[in-house]
Design a protein around this nucleic acid. Structure first.
Lengths: 343, 343
DNA sequence: TTCTCTACTGTGAACGCTCACAGAGACATG
DNA sequence: CATGTCTCTGTGAGCGTTCACAGTAGAGAA
């Protein structure tokens, strides 16, 4: 009998209605809503009861209009979206961020900047203050979008270490160097003595740091670094295969390869197979990322897992802190070695 | 030398500033902004110039406050998030929706309702009018959330056909029945004569419709349906394997199996392998979904692909139409048969 | 001329909230 | 008794839009 629904969304109760119901003023209701102090227990109780009985929900637009905050944040993905969306790790990140924000009742806006047009539109949207901050996932760090947003004073935290250290932008990343160290130490501990490496591109933080970790462990073990054992790839499968072929020529006596990504490791695997080397009997292989490629390979790859759920949580934490006025911060999280059949 | 950045976001220009700059009134600027009529070419030009020179961007909160619209929509995922996030098809859908909405300058809010608490929070958020409509992805159709939102008069469009036909909720889905018909016709055309099927659960639309398609084609070909050739699964790999074992017992002479999901098809593959049947020489297998399982199987599965990018576009189109006041609508999109090695 | 109609423009009032401020008690201190 | 401090409460103003309405100018018709 009520004249509810049927698309005719009935007018929502306002703070006024709650105030009337509770027998107090708007100001008092507002103070209760914002968890403020200076409100008597009696008033608070009355207001809370009135909120419940009226089914009041704050109008975020009205609030934002006056506070200047939007109480929402953007999740910005620039560039090659396919690559990310196909990666389950990326999905863990997206999900983790959404849930971490939900705990603060902050909605996440998904923003994909593929084309130049989209980039412009999104940058305008963000700098106009429609979100309070941005969680950025960008392939090549030192992204112009990051710079632009930072220059506009938008709180920002990137996923992964930016390469252009010039600008002070917050980031959360896994400890690439330590992950690499773990893997090389592990290979050495399992008896391998001629440990080669296929690095990522040296203009990426991952490329640099994972190589640094490799070098450090050799130094630590008193093994002289042999340049013939180092080859560079481009994170692609084909790149890994080519690098492995060069390694086999330059240093045919290698008995282990630390590869800076699982995808490249697949290429390495196939090169070794072609060369008649057995894995892990003749050559052990360690990957990086714990991507699906690690499980799809045969043998399954021993690899380094990055703690994507924790990365998500930390990104949100750092972003909210920054929105709250704190300075940019960098967070490095430990990795985990996943032992499988390739070692 | 400018006192820009440093977190001190300078006050954004308002419609007032634009009006002053252009020498017109707020009203005129507003009319230009909303693409309205009744504005002279001269005024429009002046306003557009002023917008450019001031860098004005509309304050959506102020607008929403008065229009009552939020100009944003929610993408709601209920229930088992892992399953969806792992599915590349789901990611295509999410991406497609985001991009389709971006063309209308409508942001997408990602909402994950896993726990009961989250469901409540999100339902409140939505019914409070914080989004204009909802794109729903739900595992079991006839989802209580869908009902609740529909009852509250929230524009809603579901992905996939709801089972509870009682309520009139919009949906966009691939043509399961026709996809099934295509596959069975294809198997028959390639010479198979004892075509079995492993269905999905019969309380899901996919389960029902794909079986219906199977039956229809047999009828069309004048082949009598043999119940020994029909077994039911639960969309899981193990379920597929068990169903295949039952089939092999009941109808050992089968020479093809149409399986209602790729995951189940993997199970069927493994059962056939154990029974010493070769695929595709002895038995052809047709899957459904074109999921990663289809490519990961050996041999790779011939399967039915659902047009996820088009589904995304249609969901957005239907939702916006509904927000605009149109009635709920159902859209069925054609599928595509992907031929691989299993047939 | 005068009136009507059309095309356009400006203005005040809202939308629902927060914030700053003023003020009221209650109580202690000088 | 005056004064100060502390806790609590109500009120007016204003955030930046849109919307309804009133008003103006110019063209054409009576």
């Amino acid at each position: 009998m009520t004249m509810s629904n049927a698309g005719a969304r009935r007018k929502a109760p306002t703070i006024h209605d709650v105030a009337r119901e509770a027998g107090v003023s708007r100001g008092t209701v507002s103070r209760v809503l914002n968890g403020g102090h200076y409100v008597s227990p009696a008033a608070r109780e009355a207001v809370e009861a009135a909120i419940k009985s009226t089914g009041y929900v704050v109008n975020r637009h009205a609030r934002s209009l006056i506070t200047g905050r939007s109480d929402s944040v953007g999740f910005l993905l620039t560039e090659p979206q396919e690559r990310f969306f196909e990666d389950p790790n990326f999905n863990v990140l997206l999900r983790g961020c959404t849930q971490a924000l939900a705990a603060y009742d902050i909605p996440l806006l998904l923003m994909l900047a593929g084309t130049q047009d989209e980039r412009r539109r999104i940058t305008r949207y963000i700098t106009a203050g429609h979100v309070d901050g941005v969680l950025l996932v960008s392939s090549h760090s030192g992204d112009p979008v990051a710079e632009e947003l930072r220059a506009a004073g938008v709180p920002l935290v990137a996923c992964g270490k930016p390469i252009g250290q010039a600008s002070k932008v917050s980031y959360v990343a896994a400890d690439d160097r330590d992950g690499a160290r773990d893997m090389v130490r592990f290979l050495h501990a399992s008896g391998r003595r001629r440990i080669a490496t296929v690095t990522g591109p040296l203009d990426t933080p991952g490329g640099v740091d994972r190589l640094a970790g490799y070098r450090e462990v050799l130094a630590e073990l008193g093994i002289e670094v042999d340049d013939r054992l180092i080859e560079h790839g481009d994170y692609s499968r084909a790149g890994g295969e080519a690098a492995a072929e060069r390694l086999l020529t330059a240093a045919p006596d290698l008995d282990a390869v630390f590869v800076a990504s699982d995808l490249m490791a697949q290429g390495v695997l196939s090169a070794l197979h072609k060369a008649g080397r057995r894995v892990p009997e003749d050559v052990a292989i360690g990957g990086f990322d714990d991507s699906p490629a690690a499980l799809a390979s045969s043998p399954e790859l021993t690899t380094i897992r990055q703690p994507w759920d924790r990365i998500a949580n930390e990104m949100v934490r750092v972003l909210l802190a920054q929105i709250g006025g704190e300075d940019p911060a960098a967070v490095i999280l430990p990795t985990e070695l996943i032992e499988r059949r390739s070692t």
